[in-house]
Design a protein around this nucleic acid. Sequence first.
DNA 1: CGGCCGATCAGCT
DNA 2: GCTGATCGGCCGA
Length: 219
Amino acid sequence: MRERGVGLGSRDEPLARDALRGGAAEVAPGLIGCRVVRVVDGRRLSGTIIETEAYVGVHDRASHAFGGRRTARNESMYAAAGAAYVYFTYGMHHCFNVVCGEEGDPQAVLVRAILPQEGLEFMRARRRAGAADRDLCSGPGKLCQAMGIDRTLNAVDLCSDPGLFLAAQPPGWRAARVVRCARIGLGDVGGWKDRRLRWLIAGSPFVSAAPRGGNRARP
DNA sequence: CGGCCGATCAGCT
DNA sequence: GCTGATCGGCCGA
């Protein structure tokens, strides 16, 4: 895939809301190849989404909304498609999700890794000193740290917020091969751990972890 | 109110 | 591969 952007930022229309409707299992693979754009402190940070995970609703035992659980923390999961769900975990990390169900149906896509494209120097400053470029955004906590995403952005509308939004690729961008595999970091909860609800770009060294069985791009 | 634990990361063996 | 860091949210008493 192309790693040096050509004309990135020349046109920055946020993704249409319709692109984010339809449920997590449908939207998650579709988000691969889209860009995340963050504007903070007068700076632009952006990158292409290369790894996602779907949390598919109240029946998903691995979801924060399992069984219809609805609290102040996960309230934005119940918003209409296009909302951001940003939460804090492990006492130190944030995670960024794209809400993609109808209002009241808590489905969301966790953005697990992006290919950094704009604002690398500012990402390096936010991340641990000495981190390699491939480690700037290769995980849900890492990309939030690199892009300055925290709970103040919870529930913002990703189709209209000037500080955080999603955008399509410039014309001419070529899609890379996408592979589907099991989700990561979940407890052993009734088979949901092994459902193949994670998507990533094959062969990319910028993803958080290779799937079981390897991550080689095939022709 | 107390205790447990997490959609993680980094550093070490 | 294993483990400590670090703390808000959640649930049960």
